[in-house]
Design a protein around this nucleic acid. Structure first.
Length: 127
DNA sequence: AACTGCTTCAACCGCTGATCG
DNA sequence: ACGATCAGCGGTTGAAGCAGT
């Protein structure tokens, strides 16, 4: 249950929100995400803040196109680990699980020859 | 130029596992 | 042991941009 009963903002992040979040995480460090919105003065839920930091604001993140060796590594790791995106991301410096997942679903699916995004009629929750 | 379908990617949702009291 | 809460994950959605007609 999200403890934010006050109106929580959704949708795309504004540059000012990025600045507040970055400042807050740099000051207090990662972790304690439930406290971040309050500390930063953001009307966002902790999930949203965490995702934004991990996927876009973190200084170590590498943007731009995937290099050939990265693609090769992703394919091999995926063969090994399956859809364990966070594990795959952990072995590719500067790339996030969300990035890799998106790249896989949009590009590599076809390249590797997986039919469609997922096996036909795959249940939404199957863990 | 306008319309339409496709692709990409940022963000959200719902769930599970870990932790704590 | 158990319920509540939090962190983290994978799957999905939707908007924006692009390409083709």
């Amino acid at each position: 249950m999200e403890s934010q009963l006050v109106s929580v903002r959704k949708g795309a992040w504004a540059p000012e929100e990025d600045i507040l979040l970055r400042r807050c995480v740099l000051q207090y460090g990662e972790g304690q995400w439930h406290l971040i919105p309050e500390r930063a003065g953001l009307k966002r839920c902790r999930k949203s803040c965490r995702l934004r930091w991990l996927n876009y604001l973190k200084p170590s993140i590498k943007r731009g196109v995937f290099q050939e060796d990265e693609v090769d590594l992703i394919i091999r790791l995926h063969r090994l680990l399956g859809n364990r995106w966070s594990l795959i991301a952990g072995r590719i410096p500067g790339r996030t699980a969300n990035d890799i997942k998106n790249y896989w679903n949009s590009c590599l699916c076809k390249k590797v020859g997986v039919r469609g995004r997922w096996p036909e009629h795959q249940q939404k929750k199957h863990r």
